[in-house]
């Protein structure tokens, strides 16, 4: 168990080099993940949510826009398992339709933020110096720009469009990701195995892709699990600005923010969407933590 740091550096390089040669690392990770019950539970729940979202148009008992004004808001019953909203629409159906929007926005916008943020942060942190200064000051500038006006303009110029939604969310969410990745890269770059890799004459791209990024994965995964809920909720703010989904469509974020307004009169309108969101987020976190453990090259030797 007690190894000297020199051998660790060697070891890491050897471990990581196996990525090049084959898929053994991923296979190992998958095997380790399967042993983590909580993570597998998370994976099942998330997959279940995605499948339900995909099948929604064929399996919902009611239409998501059909109103029954005389019925109004009713508590959960045999006819409406999760109750109805103030316009008499079936809440279960609306949550299911909302999941299509929310999950899509959550995953796709996070993917946009993830790819830009990781790339930007890695390059910035790895090269340091002027490159770092330029790239990080760009991040500062983008942070500071007034977001609300930006969204309004985006709408005016391009009209309402789901792609725009991802762009707008991605445009803000990648910034913190980039800063966090850069911070990690800065400290990883100081590790002996990177020095060793440089001495061995490996090309920079290879060092970054094979040695630096994999070692930031743990933090990245955690931040991804934090970004997804953020994105899902940001979507409801954008809907209020006119971007995002428009009625009668809905999303989890919108259902929750309307639910808050009536939480005393019709508590189910807040509770059920919030529970569904929470279950999904908890599962994503279990899955994320499991993935983090499974992908941690050092932990693998335990």
């Amino acid at each position: 168990m007690t190894q000297s740091s020199e051998t660790t550096a060697e070891q890491s390089i050897i471990d990581l080099d196996s990525v090049e040669s084959g898929t053994s690392l991923w296979e190992d990770a998958w095997n380790r993940l399967q042993q983590n019950k909580l993570a597998m539970f998370g994976l099942y729940v998330v997959s279940f949510m995605i499948i339900i979202a995909l099948l929604t148009p064929w399996i919902t008992p009611y239409s998501y826009f059909e109103q029954d004004l005389d019925l109004g808001a009713t508590a959960p019953s045999a006819a409406h398992w999760l109750g109805t909203d103030t316009l008499g629409r079936d809440l279960l159906t609306r949550i299911m339709y909302g999941s299509r929007i929310s999950l899509m926005v959550g995953f796709l916008a996070t993917a946009v933020a993830l790819s830009i943020g990781v790339l930007w942060g890695t390059v910035s942190g790895y090269f340091g110096g002027r490159v770092d200064a330029f790239m990080m000051r760009t991040v500062d500038i983008l942070y500071a720009l007034p977001f609300t006006i930006f969204i309004i303009l985006l709408m005016v110029v391009f009209g309402r469009n789901i792609l725009l939604l991802f762009m707008a969310i991605g445009a803000v969410e990648w910034l913190t990701m980039a800063r966090i990745v850069r911070g990690q890269v800065l400290s990883i770059r100081q590790q002996e195995y990177i020095d060793a890799a440089i001495t061995m004459g490996l090309p920079k791209r290879q060092i970054m892709l094979r040695h630096v990024i994999p070692n930031t994965l743990g933090t990245i995964i955690i931040y991804v699990t934090l970004t997804i809920p953020n994105v899902i909720l940001l979507e409801s703010f954008l809907s209020f600005l006119g971007l995002g989904v428009q009625p009668p469509q809905s999303s989890w974020g919108l259902l929750i923010s309307y639910g808050v307004e009536t939480m005393e009169e019709y508590p189910w309108l807040l509770i059920f969407p919030a529970v569904v969101l929470s279950v999904t987020l908890f599962s994503l976190n279990f899955l994320g933590d499991g993935l983090r453990d499974a992908l941690d090259p050092k932990a693998s030797r335990d």
């Binding site: 309004i152 709408m155 005016v156 309402r160 809907s239 209020f240 600005l241 006119g242 428009q246 009625p247």
Partner: peptide, 10 residues
């Protein structure tokens, strides 16, 4: 018909 909510000024 579709609905479009807009910022007051827009």
């Amino acid at each position: 018909v579709t609905l479009a909510n807009q910022d007051w000024q827009v």
